[in-house]
Design a protein around this nucleic acid. Structure first.
Lengths: 343, 343
DNA sequence: TCTTAGCACTCTCTTTTGATGAGTGCTAAG
DNA sequence: CTTAGCACTCATCAAAAGAGAGTGCTAAGA
């Protein structure tokens, strides 16, 4: 374990590096952070810390830079929990006070708030719709031969699409069909829907055979489309503000990886319910983001995990502030969700 | 007017520059494009073209680069209309063949297709929802004290949000309320909804006074939120592939401008129904995009303009290919829209 | 009159060189 | 164990030199 002074030195180096993005020299530490010892002493400590793997040296005569292990120690032991500024707190409150309370817009808002107050990129993972229970199915007749097909699931997700319907079907018949389908499918997840359920529906609605078959196909298609957790990404261009991504190439590497939803799912899989998870540089399994850190959390409705939020920044990110922001937003979001979707 | 040979030289220079992004020298033209004259002759022509304002010279001993006027001449007179590759045509067809035909996903698909096949950024402007006619209003009871509030307008837009409702209201009552509201509001745009309409509704639904008031507020909020044409942007990171935006600063300038929806609306305001519009560099009024060109078109349902599509690339963009792609996609989209939303 | 070969000239880009300075490691004295 | 002192390393910056691409001009040829 590191003795007290080594911890102070490591802390100072990391905090200075987070601030400046420049390798930190012994003299800087001695002057700016009052440890009461000379730069030579700091230098010795730094040499030790390097040997122990907490620091790295870009080249012989440069200052030190924290290693993944160094950040890890900082996050686990040294970091003080920050509190958000009044302004940020207000921003978060405001964001969730808008009238519209649709899941989709709540998530959009979450991404916006987090990107704004942290200045990093934010990703959100929704639930696996195909696993959630169907709640209601509705056909609303539109003009001519089209109808709006609305599918509602228990976790408040609403999906809709426009479908062709036979010209001859009346609004009343559509109403009936909606009711029968809802009756048969309510409480089931798409994975639950067995052949027998489907034939039950066909039985009850024999008259509309073809239309029903088409609708069920569509339902399956809709839910399959959402087989995987849905991914939202926001604040991408914030990356360009970080000096470590000035080189375009690096920025592009990150972009191209984040654009693949599968990768985002993989990344966030580490997030566990109930606490904030920090994944630093090489701890991420995806190679292209090993210059990045990820801070993630889950949000929930009541006690049930609903989705995940991740904040992606450079390894040199402001961990304490970001963690504070994420904690706060997660709480606010879970709260609103609980109230809106409700248990 | 330019004589035949000058036109050929200008054409060659522009096409070479589009390809390479490097100032074009007289020797390159003489060698690569068989004009049958020596580089010295080309040189004289280039000097003339420069004096006439079609070309520019980054510095004394560099090759020439097309000016805005040069591109304009190229687009108006020289450019041959390209035809899309089999592969691209297939890609477009495929994209619109998916089952789900919701407006939103059609637009998403449009953005995706265009960004992919052109490798530039794509923006889409939807209609001004608050101007379109309301078609249906529905409350679907969810669990407990919440309901799904669905608003359908004639152009196929569906908006929805979750609202609190008094616990005491039954599904049947909600149904009634939906019907009354639809009856009173159908065919009206939000701008049409007068005080008298609102009080009519209140009259008919006196019993639900408070709830109705809240719902109308919400409706107003929803539609106001869509007061301006909605903006979608996609393929942003394609910009980083262009050599003219290697410098981060330029890329960031464009990003920060495109993120402002208002600016995108302004930019696309030039697009006129029925034809492709090309806006080159300084022809754009917004300063930050004067290194860019914009190719725009409108798409429609039947004969009515529905929205606008714009493709933003460097001035040096491949105009003929992009125009071809945009034309093709616009046609395909308008077709699908007509079939789906229908007249 | 138009075209073209030839040539001097210009200017960017790349490479080289040297100076600067931040930072280190080591040593020896306190 | 701490620290002043010092030699050493190496990135960075600026100036200098060299190369190369491209030009404009001139004069000769068609």
């Amino acid at each position: 374990m590191l003795d007290e002074r080594k911890q102070r030195v490591l802390e100072a180096i990391i905090e200075d590096y987070i601030l400046t993005a420049l390798p930190v020299g012994s003299r800087t530490i001695a002057r700016k952070y009052g440890l009461g010892v000379s730069s030579a002493t700091i230098r010795n400590e730094m040499a030790d810390l390097e040997e122990m793997g907490y620091l790295e040296q870009p080249h012989t005569s440069a200052g030190r830079v924290p290693s993944d292990k160094g950040y890890r120690f900082y996050v686990d032991w040294l970091m003080k929990s920050a509190s958000l500024s009044e302004e940020h707190l207000r921003r978060i409150q405001q964001g969730y006070q808008k009238k519209a309370r649709e899941i989709e817009s709540l998530i959009q808002e979450t991404i916006k708030v987090l990107s704004e107050i942290t200045d990093y990129m934010t990703v959100v993972l929704g639930p696996q719709i195909s696993r959630t229970k169907l709640e209601q199915i509705h056909f609303l007749k539109l003009s001519g031969n089209s109808a709006l097909f609305v599918v509602v699931t228990t976790v408040g997700f609403v999906d809709k699409c426009i479908v062709d319907i036979p010209e001859s079907i009346t609004p009343e018949e559509l109403e009936l069909i909606s009711e029968v389908m809802t009756h048969h499918l309510k409480g089931k997840s798409m994975e639950d829907v067995t052949r027998s359920t489907l034939s039950d529906i066909r039985m009850d609605l024999g008259k509309y055979q073809e239309f029903i078959a088409a609708s069920l196909d569509l339902l399956e298609y809709l839910l399959n489309q959402r087989k995987e957790e849905r991914v939202w990404v926001g604040g991408k261009t914030k990356i360009l503000n970080q000096p470590e991504f000035q080189s375009i190439e690096k920025a592009r590497a990150v972009f191209s990886v984040i654009d693949q939803e599968k990768v985002v799912r993989d990344l966030l899989s580490a997030a566990t319910p109930g606490s904030i998870h920090v994944s630093i540089g090489g701890e991420n399994r995806i190679e292209e983001v090993q210059d990045c850190s990820l801070i993630s959390a889950t949000f929930r409705i009541g006690t049930e995990t609903y989705g995940k939020i991740g904040i992606i920044g450079p390894k040199r990110m402001d961990y304490s502030h970001t963690v504070a922001a994420l904690e706060c937003v997660e709480k606010a979001l879970s709260e609103v969700l609980c109230r809106v979707i409700g248990a």
